[in-house]
Design a binder for these strands. Structure first.
Lengths: 230, 230
DNA sequence: TTTAACTAAATGACTGGTCAGTTAGTTAAA
DNA sequence: TTTAACTAACTGACCAGTCATTTAGTTAAA
C-alpha cells in the first residue's frame, strides 16, 4: 500500500557479478531435476535466479554450458580424501565400510547433493560430457578404490575370496535401489512416518547380510576370530 | 535412369492397418531410448516405421499417447506366473532365488526388454503416468511377492531375521547397479571381451554373499543342516 | 562534497528455426 | 465406384540465442 517515504524507489536490479553464476546454477539444478533439461526454458532459470534471460548469457555461452558448469561445480568437491583413505587402508574392509556407509548415505540424503547424480543419469544419453565428467571425477575414482580395498582384504584373508568387481556392485547396489524406488516410483519402506527412507535400517540390514556373506571360509587364514553375529 | 519394364510401378505405400501400431511403437522405443522422448521428433518415428508423420496420428492421438502405449504394451506380459510362483512358495527363499536370478537376468539382457524400464526411469518425472503404470503392473506386484517370500522364510526359520523391505532392496540392487554402471557410465567389469557384462559372475558373487548373509543364526530352528559354503 | 562523465551489468523485445499436430488431397484395396 | 489408409504440405506455438538500449555503480574533475 504505502510507498516508502524516501524519494528514491528501489532499484530495478543490482550489479552482482560474483554472485550471479552460482545463483543461476542453483536455479537451473532445481529446474533440471524437476522437469528435465529439455523442458526447462532458459527464461525460467533466469526468473528463478532473479535475473533476466539475457543475463544468463552474460555468464554462460549456451544452455548446454549451464548444465555442464553445474555438474562441474558439483563433482569438484565430492571425492578426494575419502578415496585416499580407502585406498590406503590395510585390514578388514568391513571396518571401513561400517564407518563410511552412514557418511555416504548422509550425503545422499541431502536433496541438493543427490540431485546431481540423478541429473547426470537422466541426461547422460544426450549429454555424454556429463557422464564422462562424472565417471572421471567421481565413479572412476571411487570404484577402483573400493575394488582395491576388497583385493587387499582378500589377500590378507580378512574376507571371503570373491570377484572384487562384482562385490563392489553388491556393496553399492542396495543404496541405489533404495533411492530409485522412492524417487522414481514412490515406493517407500513400511514406516509410521510418510516419505521415510529409514536409512539406518537399510544400512543395518545391508551390512548384516553383506558382512556375514564376506566372512571368510574356515580354510582361510584369519578365521580364528569369532564370527560377528546379530 | 531405366524404369522397370513392368507396366505397374511399385505402389507408393501399402495399407496395413493391423501392423502399423506395433511398428510405430517399435520405432519409437528405439528412438526414445537412444535420444530421449523430447529429442525424438514424431517425423523420425514415422520414417523409421516406414510411414509418414500423419499416419502416426491415425493410430495415436499425440506423442504422449505413443510413449504411454509403448509402456502399456510392454508391462502387460512381464509378471504374472512368476509372481504367483514366488508368492505361493514355502521353504528356504534361497532355493527359489537361485532359480529365478538367471531367468531374470536373461530377460534383462535382451536390449528390447531392458529398454522399457530404462525409458520409464528416465521419463518418469515428466510422465508420471509411466511411473504409475510400471509401479502398478510390475514393481508393485513383484516387490510384495518377494517381501512375502522373505517373511515366510524367516517364520520358517530358513533364513536370518532381517527387515524384509530392506532385504528385497539388497537382493535387487546389485543387478541395477551393474546395468547402470555399464549403460550410463560405460564402466564394465574386467574381462577379455569388450562390453562383457559377465552376468553369471555377478549372480555367482551376489548369491554367494547374500546366501551366506541370509544363513540363520545358530539359535534359529533350521540351523542343524550344514552351512552351504563356496 | 558534489556532479558529470564513464563503465559495464542487466534488460527485454526481437528473430529465425524447430516441431507437434492438422488437413486437403491422393492412392491402394475391396 | 467407394472407402479409408495414407501422404505431404501447411500452421501456429514455442523457445534458444542476439542485440540495441537502459540503468547501477564508479571515478575523477570542479
Amino acid at each position: 500500500m504505502s510507498e516508502d517515504t524516501t524519494p528514491e524507489a528501489a532499484p530495478k536490479f543490482r550489479r552482482r557479478k560474483e554472485a550471479r553464476p552460482d545463483e543461476i546454477l542453483d536455479a537451473a539444478l532445481d529446474l533440471f531435476v524437476e522437469k528435465g533439461f529439455d523442458r526447462t526454458r532458459v527464461e525460467e532459470i533466469a526468473t528463478r535466479a532473479g535475473v533476466s534471460k539475457g543475463a544468463v548469457y552474460l555468464y554462460f555461452s549456451s544452455k548446454d554450458a549451464v548444465i555442464e558448469a553445474l555438474v562441474d561445480r558439483a563433482v569438484g568437491v565430492i571425492v578426494g580424501e575419502v578415496v585416499d583413505q580407502i585406498g590406503g587402508f590395510k585390514g578388514d574392509p568391513r571396518e571401513i565400510l561400517r564407518q563410511i556407509a552412514p557418511l555416504f548415505m548422509a550425503r545422499m540424503s541431502d536433496p541438493r547433493v543427490l540431485a546431481v547424480p540423478k541429473l547426470v543419469i537422466r541426461e547422460a544419453p544426450t549429454h555424454p560430457k556429463l557422464a564422462t565428467m562424472y565417471r572421471e571425477r567421481v565413479i572412476g575414482r571411487a570404484l577402483p578404490a573400493l575394488v582395491a580395498l576388497f583385493r587387499q582384504g582378500m589377500e590378507g584373508g580378512y574376507i571371503r575370496e570373491v570377484d572384487p568387481d562384482m562385490a563392489v556392485r553388491c556393496v553399492l547396489g542396495p543404496f541405489l535401489m533404495h533411492v530409485l524406488l522412492a524417487d522414481v516410483f514412490d515406493i517407500w519402506p513400511d514406516s509410521d512416518r510418510p516419505k521415510d527412507l529409514r536409512i539406518p535400517d537399510l544400512i543395518d540390514t545391508h551390512l548384516t547380510l553383506l558382512f556375514a556373506g564376506l566372512e571368510p571360509l574356515s580354510t582361510d587364514p584369519h578365521t580364528e576370530k569369532e564370527p560377528q553375529n546379530g
